[in-house]
Amino acid sequence: MNIFRLVGDLSHLAALIILLLKIWKSRSCAGVSGKSQIMFAMVYMTRYLDLFTTFVSVYNSVMKVVFLLFSFVTVYLIYFKFKATYDGNHDTFRVEFLVVPVAGLAVLVNHEFSFLEILWTFSIYLESVAILPQLFMISKTGCEAETITSHYLFALGIYRALYIANWIFRYYMEGFFDFIAIVAGCVQTILYCDFFYLYVTKVWKGKRLTIPA
């Protein structure tokens, strides 16, 4: 555990809490892509199956359970409790265009051809693109993203960027590297770059955020 990973994990946790609080307090999931949230739930489900097979640390297990739980609650709030406020007409990204290629890639490019390892690889690849429906939704509507949604996206994006620093650190300190995680993590971070720029130049100056289509 190093500082980059710890802050990254806390940022990841903060993102999930921000989104949950936003939906709960406003009693509305307007502007939130349910498709992205379903994909994140799939990411956690396929990656954290090792909860049943391997124990790393209490921290590791607790965080995994919390991520799973928060993610399920978010999906429940969007598709059941506050379904009436879900803006499905604008959440039109074709999820199969992401999930099918990602599943194919996970079967073809992985560390080991085993069930758990392929699911882990699938989760890494899927996480890197899971935010696209959300970004697409904001750019497509031309509507301004709520500031709180921007904070959510920033926290979620910066988490993987911090993980890249963590991987560089670990490569030099421990000699470990995971090519799959690093490449996917870089792709993921690049997808957020445009958003990061807009976030810093607009949201920090008190304006609302729009993503040009």
Binding site: F67, H111, F176, F177, D178
Partner: peptide, 10 residues
């Protein structure tokens, strides 16, 4: 050295 099978990251 590649990543160990026991994955310690989240």
């Amino acid at each position: 050295q590649m990543w160990p099978a026991k994955k310690d990251e989240l």
